[in-house]
């Protein structure tokens, strides 16, 4: 599901940030939520690689651990960055769909 003929279309960074907009989540629930949301199954190595990078960039932050499961939440800066990225994707998608519709008509 993560790949099609155009290559990898789902950026794990966007998926993780989008999933965290619903509230703080720990690793396993992030994997399940992303799977339900987009059909993409992130492995633990990929997920924590992304979380490490996002934490370093200040886009997410870890909350105190609860039974060896540490929840993460999106920061205010992370929300701003995600909004910008999603708006770009949305604009591209809108234009693409419009043109496809015009070509089909």
């Amino acid at each position: 599901m993560g790949r099609n003929r155009l290559g990898r279309t789902q950026d794990p960074t966007i998926l993780v940030l989008t999933s965290l907009t619903g509230g703080p989540q720990h690793g396993y629930s992030l994997i399940q939520d992303i799977e339900a949301m987009s059909g993409v199954t992130l492995g633990p190595g990929t997920l924590y690689g992304v979380l490490a990078r996002l934490e370093e960039e200040g886009l997410v932050e870890a909350l105190p651990a609860d039974d060896r499961r540490r929840p993460y939440r999106i920061t205010a800066h992370g929300a701003v960055v995600l909004r910008e990225r999603l708006e770009t994707i949305s604009t591209v998608a809108r234009i693409g769909l419009k043109r496809l519709g015009a070509a089909g008509a």
Partner: peptide, 11 residues
């Protein structure tokens, strides 16, 4: 040290 325990639990 930072993520080891969590990754083990998730895996």
């Amino acid at each position: 040290a930072q993520y080891g325990e969590e990754v083990r639990t998730v895996s």
